[in-house]
């Protein structure tokens, strides 16, 4: 099977329950490289739980998760950490950067941990791409909301992950900024060869994605 045909993310009979209450239930879903997708669902539909399961931060009560053909379930914590490090970049809504480091240092740290190499030129290119060259030596607390979000995208991409998962990247933004944020995500992903999985309950972004996984609201 050619690499191109192999799903970047594959969920097989994934089931997760907490205290007997089902949080996530997915029969089968696959995401192929380059097929940017939305993870849609209202609050409480299990989006965050599913992201944690995909990233290996939470073990599902049943089923199998594969990232780029490698198992994220049924393996040791160390193997999960390693797979996440090599394949996945995460963009959170509020948790963006390490507080004690500048934007540039944050990217260098993420690059060192994620790729185990140091390529300062690549870091500076990425900072330029997200339009933060003037803020490269700024601390996270000095950044505006939009700047912080862009820095988080750059931080997630610097390790060249195959899969970038963004959790509610636009819910705090107005229409104009939401458009710019999505452009930035698509452009950056195209530049680094990453595939996007964007979790949101923001209906405004629906039209920009051809693929989606919709989670139903749970009582």
């Amino acid at each position: 099977m050619a690499l191109q045909d192999e799903p970047l993310l594959e969920l097989k009979a994934v089931h997760h329950a907490i205290g007997g209450r089902t949080i996530v239930e997915i029969e089968h879903w696959a995401l192929r490289p380059g097929e940017h997708a939305l993870l849609l669902g209202p609050s409480g539909s299990g989006k965050t739980s599913l992201i944690n399961i995909v990233c290996g931060l939470v073990a599902p009560t049943g089923g199998e998760v594969r990232v780029a053909g490698e198992r994220m379930t049924g393996v040791s914590a160390l193997e999960k950490d390693d797979l996440r490090r090599r394949r996945i970049g995460l963009v959170f809504q509020t948790l963006r950067l390490v507080s004690a480091l500048t934007v540039r240092q944050n990217l260098l740290l993420a690059q060192t941990i994620g790729r185990r190499l140091r390529d300062e030129a690549d870091v500076d290119r990425l900072i330029g791409r997200v339009g933060l060259s003037h803020r490269a030596h700024g601390r996270p607390r000095e950044l505006s909301q939009g700047e912080g979000q862009r820095a988080a995208i750059a931080r997630a991409l610097v390790a060249r992950p195959a899969l970038v998962i963004a959790d509610e990247p636009t819910s705090a933004l107005d229409d104009a900024n939401t458009g710019r944020m999505l452009d930035l995500l698509f452009d950056s992903a195209a530049a680094t060869g990453a595939t996007l999985l964007v979790a949101t309950h923001d209906e405004r972004v629906r039209g920009r994605f051809a693929h989606r996984l919709e989670l139903a609201a749970r009582a």
Partner: peptide, 15 residues
Amino acid sequence: RQGDMALLRVIGASR
């Protein structure tokens, strides 16, 4: 720094 520590783990740092 709990958020920082979580972020480090998310980036790929091991326990």
